[in-house]
Nucleic acid binder design. Structure first.
Length: 418
DNA sequence: TCTGGGGTCCTAGGACCC
DNA sequence: TCTGGGGTCCTAGGACCC
Protein backbone atom coordinates (compact mmCIF):
# COMPACT_ATOMS: atom_id res chain seq x y z
CA UNK A 1 0.00 0.00 0.00
CA UNK A 2 1.40 3.34 -0.95
CA UNK A 3 1.47 6.23 1.47
CA UNK A 4 -1.25 8.85 1.31
CA UNK A 5 -0.02 12.33 0.59
CA UNK A 6 -1.47 15.78 1.13
CA UNK A 7 -0.61 18.87 -0.86
CA UNK A 8 -0.74 22.42 0.37
CA UNK A 9 -1.20 24.89 -2.45
CA UNK A 10 -0.44 28.46 -1.47
CA UNK A 11 -0.74 31.51 -3.70
CA UNK A 12 2.47 33.51 -3.73
CA UNK A 13 2.03 37.01 -2.25
CA UNK A 14 -1.63 36.55 -3.09
CA UNK A 15 -3.00 40.10 -2.91
CA UNK A 16 0.02 41.43 -4.77
CA UNK A 17 -0.36 38.73 -7.42
CA UNK A 18 -4.01 39.68 -7.88
CA UNK A 19 -3.03 43.30 -8.47
CA UNK A 20 -0.34 42.21 -10.90
CA UNK A 21 -2.77 40.22 -13.02
CA UNK A 22 -4.49 43.48 -13.92
CA UNK A 23 -1.46 45.74 -13.78
CA UNK A 24 1.30 43.79 -15.52
CA UNK A 25 3.67 46.71 -15.12
CA UNK A 26 3.95 45.69 -11.48
CA UNK A 27 5.63 42.40 -12.45
CA UNK A 28 9.12 42.02 -11.06
CA UNK A 29 8.84 45.21 -9.05
CA UNK A 30 8.51 45.72 -5.31
CA UNK A 31 4.80 45.97 -4.48
CA UNK A 32 2.85 46.12 -1.23
CA UNK A 33 -0.86 45.98 -0.47
CA UNK A 34 -2.19 48.02 2.45
CA UNK A 35 -4.91 47.21 4.96
CA UNK A 36 -8.11 49.17 5.44
CA UNK A 37 -7.53 52.91 5.76
CA UNK A 38 -4.15 52.31 4.17
CA UNK A 39 -3.06 51.54 7.73
CA UNK A 40 -0.38 48.91 7.38
CA UNK A 41 1.22 46.44 5.01
CA UNK A 42 -0.68 43.17 4.65
CA UNK A 43 0.94 41.73 1.54
CA UNK A 44 4.39 42.09 0.03
CA UNK A 45 5.92 40.95 -3.21
CA UNK A 46 9.18 39.03 -3.05
CA UNK A 47 11.01 42.19 -4.05
CA UNK A 48 9.34 44.18 -1.25
CA UNK A 49 10.26 41.49 1.27
CA UNK A 50 13.84 41.69 0.07
CA UNK A 51 13.85 45.41 0.82
CA UNK A 52 13.16 44.50 4.44
CA UNK A 53 9.58 45.75 4.65
CA UNK A 54 7.99 43.67 7.41
CA UNK A 55 4.46 42.30 7.48
CA UNK A 56 2.22 44.73 9.36
CA UNK A 57 4.55 47.69 8.83
CA UNK A 58 2.58 50.90 9.52
CA UNK A 59 2.37 52.76 6.25
CA UNK A 60 2.95 56.19 7.76
CA UNK A 61 6.28 55.02 9.13
CA UNK A 62 7.41 53.43 5.89
CA UNK A 63 5.95 55.80 3.34
CA UNK A 64 9.15 57.75 2.79
CA UNK A 65 11.25 54.62 2.53
CA UNK A 66 8.88 53.08 0.01
CA UNK A 67 8.86 56.21 -2.11
CA UNK A 68 12.63 56.32 -2.10
CA UNK A 69 12.87 52.67 -3.11
CA UNK A 70 10.19 52.95 -5.77
CA UNK A 71 7.79 50.54 -4.11
CA UNK A 72 4.34 50.41 -5.71
CA UNK A 73 1.53 50.71 -3.20
CA UNK A 74 -2.01 49.32 -3.54
CA UNK A 75 -4.97 49.73 -1.22
CA UNK A 76 -6.71 46.43 -0.53
CA UNK A 77 -9.56 45.41 -2.80
CA UNK A 78 -11.21 42.42 -1.13
CA UNK A 79 -13.91 41.96 -3.72
CA UNK A 80 -11.25 41.43 -6.35
CA UNK A 81 -9.22 39.07 -4.16
CA UNK A 82 -12.31 37.06 -3.27
CA UNK A 83 -13.21 36.64 -6.91
CA UNK A 84 -9.66 35.65 -7.89
CA UNK A 85 -9.54 33.20 -4.99
CA UNK A 86 -12.73 31.51 -6.20
CA UNK A 87 -11.18 31.07 -9.63
CA UNK A 88 -8.01 29.55 -8.25
CA UNK A 89 -10.00 27.16 -6.06
CA UNK A 90 -12.08 26.08 -9.00
CA UNK A 91 -8.97 25.08 -10.91
CA UNK A 92 -7.58 23.23 -7.88
CA UNK A 93 -10.80 21.28 -7.52
CA UNK A 94 -9.99 19.66 -10.85
CA UNK A 95 -6.90 18.08 -9.31
CA UNK A 96 -8.46 16.23 -6.39
CA UNK A 97 -11.97 15.19 -5.50
CA UNK A 98 -11.14 15.90 -1.88
CA UNK A 99 -9.95 19.34 -1.02
CA UNK A 100 -10.14 21.82 1.83
CA UNK A 101 -10.17 25.55 1.24
CA UNK A 102 -8.09 26.66 4.17
CA UNK A 103 -7.96 30.40 3.62
CA UNK A 104 -8.41 32.93 0.87
CA UNK A 105 -5.08 31.89 -0.64
CA UNK A 106 -4.47 28.33 0.53
CA UNK A 107 -5.98 24.92 0.00
CA UNK A 108 -5.13 21.36 1.05
CA UNK A 109 -5.58 18.65 -1.55
CA UNK A 110 -5.85 14.96 -0.81
CA UNK A 111 -3.45 13.14 -3.15
CA UNK A 112 -4.52 9.71 -1.96
CA UNK A 113 -3.83 7.08 -4.58
CA UNK A 114 -1.08 9.04 -6.32
CA UNK A 115 2.22 7.14 -6.42
CA UNK A 116 5.08 8.93 -4.73
CA UNK A 117 7.15 9.22 -7.89
CA UNK A 118 4.28 10.94 -9.72
CA UNK A 119 3.60 13.58 -7.10
CA UNK A 120 6.04 16.15 -8.35
CA UNK A 121 4.94 15.91 -11.98
CA UNK A 122 1.33 16.29 -10.94
CA UNK A 123 2.13 19.29 -8.77
CA UNK A 124 4.06 20.97 -11.55
CA UNK A 125 1.14 20.48 -13.90
CA UNK A 126 -1.23 21.87 -11.27
CA UNK A 127 0.91 24.92 -10.86
CA UNK A 128 1.10 25.56 -14.59
CA UNK A 129 -2.65 25.12 -14.98
CA UNK A 130 -3.47 27.56 -12.20
CA UNK A 131 -1.13 30.12 -13.68
CA UNK A 132 -2.43 29.67 -17.20
CA UNK A 133 -6.09 29.94 -16.15
CA UNK A 134 -5.86 32.68 -13.52
CA UNK A 135 -2.48 34.39 -13.78
CA UNK A 136 -1.75 33.59 -10.13
CA UNK A 137 1.57 31.91 -9.23
CA UNK A 138 1.36 29.26 -6.53
CA UNK A 139 3.73 27.07 -4.52
CA UNK A 140 2.99 23.45 -3.76
CA UNK A 141 4.24 21.53 -0.72
CA UNK A 142 3.58 17.82 -0.38
CA UNK A 143 3.88 15.55 2.65
CA UNK A 144 2.07 12.75 4.46
CA UNK A 145 0.40 15.14 6.91
CA UNK A 146 -0.93 18.66 6.58
CA UNK A 147 1.82 19.96 8.85
CA UNK A 148 4.49 18.32 6.68
CA UNK A 149 2.81 19.71 3.55
CA UNK A 150 3.08 23.13 5.19
CA UNK A 151 6.76 22.59 5.90
CA UNK A 152 7.28 21.43 2.32
CA UNK A 153 5.55 24.53 1.03
CA UNK A 154 7.73 26.73 3.20
CA UNK A 155 10.84 24.97 1.89
CA UNK A 156 9.64 25.19 -1.72
CA UNK A 157 9.65 28.97 -1.36
CA UNK A 158 12.78 29.23 0.75
CA UNK A 159 14.96 26.85 -1.23
CA UNK A 160 13.65 28.25 -4.51
CA UNK A 161 13.28 24.81 -6.07
CA UNK A 162 12.86 26.31 -9.52
CA UNK A 163 9.47 24.75 -10.17
CA UNK A 164 7.74 25.96 -7.02
CA UNK A 165 7.17 22.41 -5.83
CA UNK A 166 8.69 20.38 -3.02
CA UNK A 167 7.86 16.87 -1.87
CA UNK A 168 8.84 15.52 1.54
CA UNK A 169 8.86 11.74 1.04
CA UNK A 170 7.36 9.61 3.81
CA UNK A 171 9.89 9.09 6.60
CA UNK A 172 12.23 11.82 5.38
CA UNK A 173 13.42 14.04 8.18
CA UNK A 174 16.19 15.92 6.43
CA UNK A 175 13.75 18.58 5.23
CA UNK A 176 12.90 19.47 8.84
CA UNK A 177 16.43 20.38 9.68
CA UNK A 178 16.72 23.91 8.39
CA UNK A 179 13.24 24.93 9.50
CA UNK A 180 12.95 27.12 12.57
CA UNK A 181 10.46 25.73 15.05
CA UNK A 182 8.53 28.99 14.81
CA UNK A 183 7.73 28.07 11.19
CA UNK A 184 5.86 24.96 12.28
CA UNK A 185 2.09 25.20 11.88
CA UNK A 186 0.72 25.93 15.36
CA UNK A 187 3.89 27.37 16.90
CA UNK A 188 3.52 31.09 17.39
CA UNK A 189 5.07 33.97 19.29
CA UNK A 190 4.46 32.57 22.76
CA UNK A 191 5.40 28.96 22.16
CA UNK A 192 8.63 29.72 20.32
CA UNK A 193 10.60 31.04 23.32
CA UNK A 194 9.23 28.27 25.55
CA UNK A 195 10.34 25.63 23.07
CA UNK A 196 13.69 27.34 22.54
CA UNK A 197 14.33 27.33 26.27
CA UNK A 198 14.17 23.56 26.40
CA UNK A 199 16.50 23.28 23.46
CA UNK A 200 13.95 22.91 20.66
CA UNK A 201 15.05 25.29 17.95
CA UNK A 202 14.07 23.57 14.72
CA UNK A 203 11.21 21.51 13.37
CA UNK A 204 13.55 18.53 13.53
CA UNK A 205 14.24 19.14 17.24
CA UNK A 206 10.51 19.12 17.86
CA UNK A 207 10.00 15.94 15.85
CA UNK A 208 12.72 14.19 17.86
CA UNK A 209 11.57 15.38 21.28
CA UNK A 210 9.95 13.04 23.81
CA UNK A 211 6.21 13.03 23.07
CA UNK A 212 5.28 12.49 26.74
CA UNK A 213 7.20 15.59 27.72
CA UNK A 214 5.68 17.57 24.82
CA UNK A 215 2.18 16.57 25.83
CA UNK A 216 2.79 17.47 29.44
CA UNK A 217 4.25 20.86 28.68
CA UNK A 218 2.29 21.84 25.58
CA UNK A 219 -0.96 19.90 26.02
CA UNK A 220 -2.81 18.02 23.37
CA UNK A 221 -2.14 20.59 20.65
CA UNK A 222 1.59 20.21 21.22
CA UNK A 223 1.33 16.46 20.94
CA UNK A 224 -0.62 16.74 17.71
CA UNK A 225 2.08 18.93 16.20
CA UNK A 226 4.65 16.33 17.23
CA UNK A 227 2.61 13.54 15.64
CA UNK A 228 2.10 15.41 12.40
CA UNK A 229 5.81 16.18 12.11
CA UNK A 230 6.42 12.46 12.54
CA UNK A 231 4.04 11.51 9.78
CA UNK A 232 1.08 10.55 11.95
CA UNK A 233 -2.10 12.20 10.69
CA UNK A 234 -3.77 14.27 13.40
CA UNK A 235 -5.66 16.65 11.13
CA UNK A 236 -7.76 15.32 8.26
CA UNK A 237 -9.06 17.12 5.23
CA UNK A 238 -12.21 19.07 6.09
CA UNK A 239 -13.99 18.88 2.78
CA UNK A 240 -17.14 20.64 3.82
CA UNK A 241 -16.66 23.85 5.70
CA UNK A 242 -18.17 23.66 9.18
CA UNK A 243 -20.85 26.26 9.65
CA UNK A 244 -19.39 29.35 11.27
CA UNK A 245 -19.77 29.95 15.00
CA UNK A 246 -19.29 33.67 14.93
CA UNK A 247 -19.13 36.56 12.53
CA UNK A 248 -17.38 39.85 13.15
CA UNK A 249 -17.64 43.20 11.45
CA UNK A 250 -15.28 45.82 12.81
CA UNK A 251 -13.10 48.70 11.71
CA UNK A 252 -10.50 51.06 12.99
CA UNK A 253 -11.37 54.66 12.34
CA UNK A 254 -8.89 56.73 10.46
CA UNK A 255 -10.04 59.74 12.42
CA UNK A 256 -10.94 58.87 15.99
CA UNK A 257 -14.59 59.21 16.97
CA UNK A 258 -15.78 61.08 20.03
CA UNK A 259 -19.52 61.64 19.74
CA UNK A 260 -22.27 59.13 20.33
CA UNK A 261 -24.17 59.97 17.12
CA UNK A 262 -21.07 59.30 15.02
CA UNK A 263 -20.38 56.07 16.83
CA UNK A 264 -24.01 55.01 16.47
CA UNK A 265 -23.85 55.60 12.74
CA UNK A 266 -20.73 53.49 12.45
CA UNK A 267 -22.26 50.74 14.58
CA UNK A 268 -25.40 50.75 12.51
CA UNK A 269 -23.33 50.30 9.38
CA UNK A 270 -21.32 47.44 10.96
CA UNK A 271 -24.57 45.69 11.79
CA UNK A 272 -25.83 46.19 8.24
CA UNK A 273 -22.68 44.79 6.69
CA UNK A 274 -22.41 41.94 9.16
CA UNK A 275 -26.04 40.94 8.75
CA UNK A 276 -25.67 41.00 5.00
CA UNK A 277 -22.78 38.55 5.23
CA UNK A 278 -24.70 36.42 7.71
CA UNK A 279 -27.73 36.18 5.41
CA UNK A 280 -25.45 35.32 2.52
CA UNK A 281 -24.45 32.26 4.53
CA UNK A 282 -28.13 31.56 5.16
CA UNK A 283 -27.77 32.05 8.90
CA UNK A 284 -29.45 33.82 11.77
CA UNK A 285 -27.95 34.95 15.10
CA UNK A 286 -29.09 34.81 18.70
CA UNK A 287 -26.49 37.07 20.31
CA UNK A 288 -25.06 40.43 19.39
CA UNK A 289 -21.87 41.77 20.95
CA UNK A 290 -21.17 45.46 20.53
CA UNK A 291 -17.64 46.67 21.27
CA UNK A 292 -15.76 49.96 21.28
CA UNK A 293 -12.15 50.73 22.10
CA UNK A 294 -9.69 53.60 22.27
CA UNK A 295 -6.33 53.54 20.48
CA UNK A 296 -4.20 50.71 21.81
CA UNK A 297 -1.03 52.47 20.64
CA UNK A 298 -1.70 55.66 22.57
CA UNK A 299 0.06 56.39 25.78
CA UNK A 300 -2.39 56.56 28.62
CA UNK A 301 -5.23 54.28 29.45
CA UNK A 302 -6.54 51.89 26.87
CA UNK A 303 -10.28 51.47 27.21
CA UNK A 304 -12.13 48.59 25.68
CA UNK A 305 -15.77 47.87 26.41
CA UNK A 306 -18.26 45.37 25.16
CA UNK A 307 -21.79 44.32 25.84
CA UNK A 308 -23.65 41.19 24.83
CA UNK A 309 -27.34 41.23 24.02
CA UNK A 310 -29.40 38.07 23.77
CA UNK A 311 -32.41 37.98 21.49
CA UNK A 312 -35.50 35.99 22.45
CA UNK A 313 -35.14 34.10 19.18
CA UNK A 314 -32.58 33.95 16.35
CA UNK A 315 -32.96 36.62 13.72
CA UNK A 316 -31.43 37.80 10.47
CA UNK A 317 -33.29 41.07 10.43
CA UNK A 318 -30.98 44.04 10.14
CA UNK A 319 -33.48 46.52 11.55
CA UNK A 320 -34.10 44.47 14.67
CA UNK A 321 -30.37 44.22 15.34
CA UNK A 322 -29.71 47.88 14.64
CA UNK A 323 -32.29 48.89 17.22
CA UNK A 324 -30.95 46.70 19.99
CA UNK A 325 -27.36 47.41 18.95
CA UNK A 326 -27.75 51.14 19.29
CA UNK A 327 -29.36 50.81 22.73
CA UNK A 328 -26.56 48.50 23.78
CA UNK A 329 -23.99 51.00 22.58
CA UNK A 330 -25.61 53.73 24.64
CA UNK A 331 -25.08 51.61 27.73
CA UNK A 332 -21.34 51.24 27.27
CA UNK A 333 -20.60 54.60 25.65
CA UNK A 334 -18.58 56.90 27.84
CA UNK A 335 -18.44 60.60 27.20
CA UNK A 336 -14.97 62.03 26.78
CA UNK A 337 -13.28 58.93 25.36
CA UNK A 338 -11.60 59.03 21.98
CA UNK A 339 -12.69 55.88 20.17
CA UNK A 340 -10.44 54.39 17.55
CA UNK A 341 -12.03 51.05 16.88
CA UNK A 342 -15.51 49.59 17.06
CA UNK A 343 -17.48 46.66 15.82
CA UNK A 344 -20.05 43.99 16.32
CA UNK A 345 -19.96 40.23 16.66
CA UNK A 346 -22.80 37.83 15.97
CA UNK A 347 -22.84 34.51 17.83
CA UNK A 348 -25.28 31.74 18.57
CA UNK A 349 -25.57 31.19 14.83
CA UNK A 350 -28.00 28.72 13.28
CA UNK A 351 -29.13 28.15 9.72
CA UNK A 352 -32.17 30.34 9.04
CA UNK A 353 -34.37 27.39 8.24
CA UNK A 354 -33.50 25.67 11.51
CA UNK A 355 -34.73 28.44 13.79
CA UNK A 356 -37.07 26.73 16.22
CA UNK A 357 -40.31 28.66 16.60
CA UNK A 358 -41.07 29.85 20.09
CA UNK A 359 -44.46 30.42 21.58
CA UNK A 360 -43.48 33.70 23.17
CA UNK A 361 -40.89 35.11 20.78
CA UNK A 362 -41.72 36.56 17.43
CA UNK A 363 -39.82 35.13 14.52
CA UNK A 364 -38.69 37.30 11.62
CA UNK A 365 -41.72 38.01 9.48
CA UNK A 366 -41.90 36.86 5.86
CA UNK A 367 -42.27 40.44 4.66
CA UNK A 368 -39.24 41.60 6.57
CA UNK A 369 -37.12 38.77 5.23
CA UNK A 370 -38.23 39.57 1.70
CA UNK A 371 -37.25 43.18 2.26
CA UNK A 372 -33.81 41.99 3.36
CA UNK A 373 -33.53 39.87 0.23
CA UNK A 374 -34.30 42.84 -1.96
CA UNK A 375 -31.72 44.99 -0.18
CA UNK A 376 -29.12 42.23 -0.46
CA UNK A 377 -29.66 41.77 -4.17
CA UNK A 378 -29.43 45.50 -4.79
CA UNK A 379 -26.21 45.67 -2.80
CA UNK A 380 -24.72 42.51 -4.27
CA UNK A 381 -21.89 44.22 -6.13
CA UNK A 382 -21.72 47.58 -4.51
CA UNK A 383 -23.49 49.25 -1.62
CA UNK A 384 -26.27 51.34 -3.12
CA UNK A 385 -28.85 51.07 -0.37
CA UNK A 386 -28.17 51.62 3.30
CA UNK A 387 -29.93 52.84 6.39
CA UNK A 388 -30.12 56.59 6.80
CA UNK A 389 -29.04 55.89 10.34
CA UNK A 390 -25.75 54.45 9.12
CA UNK A 391 -24.87 57.61 7.26
CA UNK A 392 -22.69 57.55 4.18
CA UNK A 393 -20.62 54.37 3.88
CA UNK A 394 -17.33 56.17 4.46
CA UNK A 395 -18.36 57.04 8.00
CA UNK A 396 -17.38 53.48 8.80
CA UNK A 397 -13.88 54.58 8.11
CA UNK A 398 -12.84 53.38 4.71
CA UNK A 399 -10.21 55.60 3.27
CA UNK A 400 -8.21 54.19 0.44
CA UNK A 401 -5.93 56.18 -1.70
CA UNK A 402 -4.63 53.52 -4.04
CA UNK A 403 -7.59 51.25 -4.74
CA UNK A 404 -7.57 49.24 -7.92
CA UNK A 405 -10.83 49.04 -9.88
CA UNK A 406 -13.23 46.14 -9.34
CA UNK A 407 -12.15 44.53 -12.59
CA UNK A 408 -14.31 41.48 -12.12
CA UNK A 409 -17.41 42.60 -10.28
CA UNK A 410 -18.36 45.95 -11.76
CA UNK A 411 -19.29 46.34 -15.40
CA UNK A 412 -17.96 49.84 -15.68
CA UNK A 413 -14.58 48.83 -14.29
CA UNK A 414 -13.86 45.83 -16.48
CA UNK A 415 -10.50 46.32 -18.17
CA UNK A 416 -10.59 47.36 -21.80
CA UNK A 417 -8.27 45.72 -24.31
CA UNK A 418 -7.40 48.00 -27.19
C1' DT B 1 -2.14 63.12 11.34
C1' DC B 2 -1.23 58.05 10.34
C1' DT B 3 -0.51 51.10 13.51
C1' DG B 4 -6.02 45.47 9.71
C1' DG B 5 -9.78 42.34 10.04
C1' DG B 6 -11.81 37.84 10.70
C1' DG B 7 -11.71 33.48 12.54
C1' DT B 8 -10.87 28.78 15.66
C1' DC B 9 -9.63 25.89 19.52
C1' DC B 10 -8.04 24.84 24.27
C1' DT B 11 -7.83 25.43 29.24
C1' DA B 12 -8.72 26.99 33.80
C1' DG B 13 -11.83 28.29 37.00
C1' DG B 14 -16.37 29.41 38.75
C1' DA B 15 -21.26 28.23 39.23
C1' DC B 16 -24.31 24.89 39.93
C1' DC B 17 -26.28 20.32 40.59
C1' DC B 18 -26.84 15.89 42.94
C1' DT C 1 -13.57 21.28 65.58
C1' DC C 2 -15.14 18.82 61.58
C1' DT C 3 -16.84 21.02 56.07
C1' DG C 4 -17.09 15.15 49.94
C1' DG C 5 -16.74 14.11 45.38
C1' DG C 6 -17.99 14.11 40.84
C1' DG C 7 -20.14 15.86 36.86
C1' DT C 8 -21.61 19.55 33.53
C1' DC C 9 -21.95 23.95 31.67
C1' DC C 10 -20.43 28.52 30.87
C1' DT C 11 -17.13 32.19 30.43
C1' DA C 12 -12.84 34.63 30.06
C1' DG C 13 -8.55 34.62 28.46
C1' DG C 14 -4.75 32.88 25.89
C1' DA C 15 -2.82 31.18 21.82
C1' DC C 16 -2.91 30.24 17.26
C1' DC C 17 -4.14 30.78 12.14
C1' DC C 18 -4.58 33.55 7.64
Amino acid sequence: MSKRYFALVDCNSFFVSCERVFQPKLQGKPVVVLSNNDGCVIARSKEAKRLGIPMGAPYFKWEAFMKAEGVSVCSSNYRLYGEMSARVMEVLRGFSPRMEIYSIDEAFLDFDGIAEEQLETLAVRLRETVFKNTGIPVSVGIGVTKTLAKVANYQAKKLDTGNGVLVIPAGNRAMLEGVGVDEVWGVGRQLTPRLNRIGIKTALDLAMADPEMIKKKFTITGLMMWQELNGVVAYGIEQFPASPKSLVCSRSFRKAVVSLPELSAAMSSFIEKGMERLRKKGMAARYLTVFIATNRFDKGKFISRNIVVKLPIESSDTLKFVNIGISALEEIFEEGCVYKRAGVMFTGLVPMNEVVPDLFAKQDSEERLRLMQVIDSLNANRTVLYLAQSGKPEVAGSDREFTSPNYLTKWDEIPVVN
